[in-house]
Design a protein around this nucleic acid. Structure first.
Lengths: 133, 133
DNA sequence: CTGACTGCAAACGTTTTGCACGGTA
DNA sequence: TACCGTGCAAAACGTTTGCAGTCAG
């Protein structure tokens, strides 16, 4: 994945092996919490420290390279920022799926019923996925 | 508010003054994080301990009397469980509003595009409220 | 070459726990 | 009365920070 160093540099972050590994792991696994991220990155770089994972997750969130996904009854997971989307969380296999929703109705309801102006939605559905049902 | 002791007893929880105070404060204020909850309850019961707030918030969540609302860039807030609804968070005044959304479209999209079965939605919109715009 | 980044360990803030006492059902 | 719940203090936990050495740009 040659583009991660570029992505990092474009966002005022140095392309260190640790950061590249975090992005590679997240690209492959989709969504991971800090502990899993640490475990996976450690496979590639056995000397990596948990503090580095925390520091980098935070710096990449600040630079809008990553985003945090807060989930009910679970630790937050992190993902590489892409086009806006919601999440489907399977309560059986714990897999987290990306899902594109048409949010027009929600935004209109917020606007009409509450005079609330926004374009930022945070949508999580909890249920049972295809494979588990 | 005479109904809180009943609500608690119905959910296998003893109606202690601390728990009643937590519910009264939440009913009045709508959504509070642990620290604010502690501060408000302390006004009524100066001897209350933070540990009791934590313990009771957890036990009432477990008994489905309260629910936790996880918000972007903020500490979680807690609310008394009522009919399902989403939340509008004003980034200017930090007020959190309840909002009823028609979630049919979302549920249908999850079902059709991902074969995902659910009725549980978690919706947060971040933006600017009526009073602040 | 220089400032940013790393690993380590210590510090920090938040949440949970153990215990003796008190209050609800 | 029996047991659940409380307050307190200590412990546990997750996360952040300070520092000396290292590395990317």
């Amino acid at each position: 994945m040659k583009e991660f160093p570029i992505l990092l540099n474009q966002n005022q972050l140095k392309a260190t092996p640790q950061r590249i590994a975090i992005l590679e792991v997240l690209q492959k696994m989709g969504h991971l919490n800090v502990d899993d991220l640490f475990a996976f990155v450690k496979k590639k770089q056995s000397s990596v420290s948990l503090a580095t994972i925390y520091t980098n997750v935070n710096s990449m969130i600040n630079k809008m390279v990553l985003s945090e996904v807060k989930l009910p009854n679970r630790k937050s997971v992190y993902e590489i920022i892409k086009i806006p989307h919601g999440h489907l969380v399977c309560t059986k296999c714990n897999t987290i799926y990306d899902a594109e929703f048409s949010t027009d109705t929600l935004l209109q309801e917020a606007s009409k019923n509450h005079e609330f102006k926004t374009k930022k939605t945070d949508i999580v559905l909890e249920g049972v996925c295809k494979n588990c049902s």
